[in-house]
């Protein structure tokens, strides 16, 4: 049985670099676009890395800025200064 973790973000200017970073850091992630939002699914585990978002954005980025564009999640959350991770216990 598949163990998809998932993050849904608004599709706006704030979230585009985050979406790009997620796709880069999680090669297995699949992004599905709906009106106004994108649902990114990944088997087992998915991570949002501060470093990658900052590289794309060209400025400092606080991981908690995710708060501004997150719509929904599925998975256990682990959050630190450097990353935001979703996972199921495998």
């Amino acid at each position: 049985m598949s163990r998809i973790v998932s993050i849904t973000l608004q599709t706006n200017d704030d979230s585009r670099p985050i979406i790009e970073a997620i796709t880069k850091d999680n090669p297995d992630a699949v992004a599905k676009y709906y009106p106004g939002m994108v649902k990114i699914d990944c088997e087992g585990r998915l991570v949002v890395k501060q470093e990658t978002v900052e590289e794309i954005l060209g400025r400092e980025w606080d991981v908690q800025e995710l708060q501004l564009s997150i719509v929904s999640i599925a998975g256990n959350v682990d959050e630190e200064d450097e990353y935001f991770e979703l996972s199921w216990n495998l």
Partner: peptide
């Protein structure tokens, strides 16, 4: 998402704003 698709800017914005807390 349906509200966004139907041009209801007000609802989709409060909806997603609430939903960001929902996470």
């Amino acid at each position: 998402s349906g509200a966004a698709f139907n041009g209801d800017m007000a609802t989709v914005t409060f909806g997603f704003s609430a939903q960001s807390d929902e996470a």
